[in-house]
């Protein structure tokens, strides 16, 4: 189907989904801590906007609640917590050296193509207006993993982790119009607890290895000769 044949709302969903994917790429390339957290907050906001649009188009009012929860958690609370922690631990101005940035971005582009390939059997079965964005949700998950692999600061890894959660939430919204409410609430609870625990961990790491570089966590080896 041609893009122009879709209704304006459907086009808006596609557009916002694409921008969400774009924020994933921005995060991959962003090496400064504070902007990284802001970009993550923007991704959460875009996710909530897309979800509300889907709720409006598909006439599924419960998605407004999901969008609200997701906005509160992913766009406000978690970024605020991360920002406050990074200020308190005095790392918000730190710049992380990202090795081979262009190569990472190319790998990211490759992952997007791969996601479209993986999504083919699902898209063929789906009759939802949002089916074309399923691949994007998979790509957000994979790019979150790539972010976690390429970074060494604990904060960037947490952002990668939360970005994977974003992708999963997005996948549930666009492929099935969201999971049942109980499950969604349970997942939101888990994400909230995980975010708090990550905060606790920053302090434990700072106290035990005097740094938030995950690279310095290298004492446990298979065999210590």
């Amino acid at each position: 189907m041609e893009f122009t044949q879709l209704s304006l709302y459907d086009q808006a969903i596609m557009l916002f989904a694409a921008i969400t994917l774009f924020t994933s790429f921005v995060m991959l390339a962003q090496s400064r801590m504070a902007p990284l957290i802001y970009t993550f907050a923007w991704q959460g906001t875009l996710l909530a906007v897309t979800t509300s649009l889907v709720a409006y188009v598909s006439n599924h009012p419960h998605l407004y609640i999901s969008a609200g929860i997701s906005f509160f958690l992913k766009a406000l609370l978690i970024p605020w917590m991360l920002h406050r922690l990074s200020v308190r631990l005095n790392i918000h101005r730190e710049v992380e050296t990202v090795a081979y940035p262009s190569l990472i971005l190319l790998a990211g582009a490759g992952l997007v193509l791969f996601s479209y390939y993986v999504a083919i059997p699902i898209v063929q079965l789906s009759a939802l207006v949002t089916r074309n964005t399923i691949a994007i949700s998979i790509a957000v998950v994979l790019l979150g993993m790539l972010l976690m692999i390429t970074r060494k600061k604990a904060i960037s890894q947490v952002i990668g982790f939360m970005s994977i959660e974003n992708g999963l939430f997005f996948a549930a919204v666009v492929s099935t119009y969201g999971m049942p409410m109980v499950v969604e609430l349970g997942i939101a609870f888990d994400v909230l607890v995980a975010a708090i625990l990550f905060g606790v961990f920053f302090f434990q790491m700072r106290a035990s290895i005097d740094s938030l570089d995950v690279d310095r966590l290298n004492r446990l080896r298979e065999v210590d000769e």
């Binding site: 993993m145 976690m148 604990a154 890894q157 982790f161 994977i164 995980a194 625990l197 990550f198 961990f201 434990q204 790491m205 035990s208 290895i209 995950v214 966590l217 290298n218 004492r219 446990l220």
Partner: peptide, 16 residues
């Protein structure tokens, strides 16, 4: 330090 490392590994690997 070892315990924190083990817990972080557990958290991240099992989480992902």
């Amino acid at each position: 330090p070892e315990a924190v490392e083990a817990a972080w590994k557990y958290f991240i690997l099992c989480g992902v």
